[in-house]
Design a protein around this nucleic acid. Structure first.
Lengths: 188, 188
DNA sequence: AGAGGCATGTAAGGGGTTACATGATTTC
DNA sequence: GAAATCATGTAACCCCTTACATGCCTCT
């Protein structure tokens, strides 16, 4: 579906689509090189896109057929079916109880740092746009970027919240050496 | 990896793991029934888990082997490699420029409503926990829930931001009928 | 005795990834 | 003419989903 959408904005080759996936779509959708080309063949077989031009190096420029545009619109207006959630980083967090709180803290700090770095990167990207947007497509692209940005910021904030929780737990377990968990080795 | 983590907390059967996936892990990780059972066979073949008990109806209770626990710890402490992003709902948004702003608005409203509903649902779930947590595992499970909750809230907020942006655009396009796009049918 | 839930397993097929394989064109 | 980039295509393999297939146990 991503290929159909990209070709809906402007005709292009598989190589072009790959570049879009690596840049503007990077925060939203990913696909491997091999997948892009197979998908283009499949879409062409289904009559949704067509080769409209052949350039140097065998470059094949695709564009939507009328059927393809119809299908794109049909897909667009129907609400997205809710994909199964899978967040590897969060899965780690769920099982962090298996290791000592100090090590768990390290993990959460790394997660938070990464989220902060992403916020910075996406902010720079966002500020590189001119405002107001030149066209609708650009506006929606920016909106998606904004979503990613806010998501990372939220993760960073959540990380700091969790770190503080862990710190409280560590503080109350070390100097007084009273509350549960394993007792410190040199406690008595 | 999810199976290894779950068995790390307590021994259980495939059926048990499925129930955990459907409830506490639902916001974090998903797997089909068939996948759970194949995964258990694979993990057992790899020597990471073992059948420790057989109950009624052929119920096989698995537990980690020492090698399994080692592997779990190893996996836990290493930072999660960043998975390729794929957000179908956001992909829709990127291409919303293909349809009129009024219809695009409808789509974003549906997205926002869904996020709001999720916030409500997860809030209820969170408040059903006792505070403070009984053990570490429970605390980290709650932290993951909190992450999902904040994520949905952020999406809802973002949705409202985008809706307002669209409304401004719709307002400036309707009464004065001056700015770009297709002119309204009965404009003269 | 029948319903509903517990419990597992397998086969077909789609989608994705990695790696392999090839070659044209531009640029320095 | 060498290097970088443009440009595509294919094969093997893994993961996952859907659907099928089976049977036991408990409760009423």
């Amino acid at each position: 579906m991503a290929a159909l959408g990209m070709l809906g904005q402007r005709p292009g080759s598989g190589y072009d689509l790959m570049k879009i996936l690596a840049t503007t779509l990077a925060t939203v959708w990913s696909a491997s090189q091999s997948q892009v080309y197979t998908e283009l063949v499949n879409l062409a077989d289904a009559g949704l896109i067509d080769v409209v031009d052949i350039g140097p190096r065998g470059r094949k420029v695709y564009d939507l057929t009328p059927a393809g545009r119809t299908e794109l619109i049909r897909w667009l207006v129907q609400p997205a079916d809710h994909e199964p959630r899978r967040d590897g980083a969060l899965l780690h967090v769920v099982f962090l109880g298996e290791i000592p709180a100090a090590e768990a803290r390290t993990y959460v700090v790394a997660m938070t740092d990464h989220a902060d770095a992403e916020v910075l990167r996406l902010c720079t990207l966002r500020d590189s746009y001119r405002w107001p947007p030149a066209d609708d497509n650009e506006m929606y692209g920016r909106a998606a970027l904004e979503h990613a940005l806010r998501g990372e910021a939220t993760t960073a904030e959540w990380g700091r919240w969790l770190i503080e929780l862990l710190d409280r737990r560590l503080r109350s377990a070390h100097p007084p050496a009273a509350a549960g968990g394993e007792p410190p080795p040199a406690a008595g």
